[in-house]
């Protein structure tokens, strides 16, 4: 474990996490890859769509491949309203998936963009029922503030639309969330490359959730490992405090040179 990050724990819902990379279970050619992806990436939180879990399966079941040591983060994929998200969350709890829930309320099948209003409603209901709620939302400060008030445990803004691998397109908005929201801000969706996860961590994101970029890679296991490094590197850089940057070399003081001395 890298020295600078080993004592740096992310606490969510009373659980202390050493790894700040969250992974997923969707889109893999085979669920049998999941244990190795967890191991090589170091990820300690994995999200799983309840819609895909078949507890009575005679066939293979994704849950069979998720190590016991990993924090399960069931998600409400497929929910179109707060009511549906709440029902799925309760089903997750009732079927032994624990009390963490990632709320996804998506009523737009073309871009899969989250519905902030319905997400806030579901968050309030489920937080009151004792769930540790991690809502997936647009990078929107007002929605994020409502989620804080509703009892969310973290905020999960998207970097770009789900599955797009387009990177941190909402960077400036995420930066505002990081500055203004006291809860952990976990960048979810859109991250396509390890360098983008690293950049999100450098600017102070608490964690990144990466699924498609790993699952759609030619070698998902090695890509998962690369994301593990990238997230650690970005976090270490953030903790170290990056130096100020300038767009041009600045050797002289053209406007204040007449004053003499150093005016940089």
């Amino acid at each position: 474990m890298d020295n600078i990050t080993k004592e740096d724990l992310l606490i969510i819902g009373g659980v202390a996490l050493k790894s700040r990379l969250f992974t997923g279970t969707g889109k893999y050619p085979s669920d049998t890859m999941i244990p190795e992806i967890i191991e090589r990436s170091g990820s300690q939180v994995i999200t799983v769509a309840l819609r895909r879990v078949d507890f009575a399966a005679g066939t293979e079941n994704v849950m069979d491949y998720i190590p016991q040591s990993v924090q399960l983060l069931p998600n409400t994929s497929g929910a179109r309203t707060a009511d549906e998200a709440v029902r799925i969350a309760r089903l997750a709890k009732a079927t032994g998936c624990g009390n963490w829930i990632k709320i996804e309320v998506i009523s737009d099948n073309r871009y899969l963009l989250p519905d902030g209003y319905e997400t806030v409603k579901a968050t309030e209901i489920l937080a009151n029922e004792g769930f540790v709620v991690l809502p997936y939302v647009n990078a929107d400060l007002m929605v994020a503030r409502s989620l804080v008030a509703a009892g969310a445990a973290a905020i999960m803004p998207l970097g770009a639309p789900i599955g797009s691998n387009r990177g941190l397109r909402t960077e400036e908005m995420i930066r505002i969330l990081i500055e203004e929201i006291a809860l952990p801000v976990i960048v979810d969706a859109g991250i396509g490359k390890p360098s983008e996860a690293c950049a999100a961590m450098e600017m102070g994101a608490a964690a990144c959730l990466v699924n498609t970029a790993i699952a759609s890679a030619g070698d998902p296991v090695t890509m998962a490992e690369a994301f593990g490094w990238a997230v650690r590197a970005g976090r270490a850089a953030f903790l170290s405090g990056t130096g100020a940057t300038r767009k041009t070399a600045a050797a002289s003081s053209p406007l204040t040179g007449f004053l003499g001395g150093r005016n940089r």
């Binding site: 085979s30 669920d31 879990v53 399966a57 497929g78 029902r87």
Partner: peptide, 21 residues
Amino acid sequence: LKAFGYQPIYKDWQLIGGSLS
């Protein structure tokens, strides 16, 4: 499907009405 590197999905939705609502 597996031989071609694809995962067969048996369940991708679940009726969510009933007693849990």
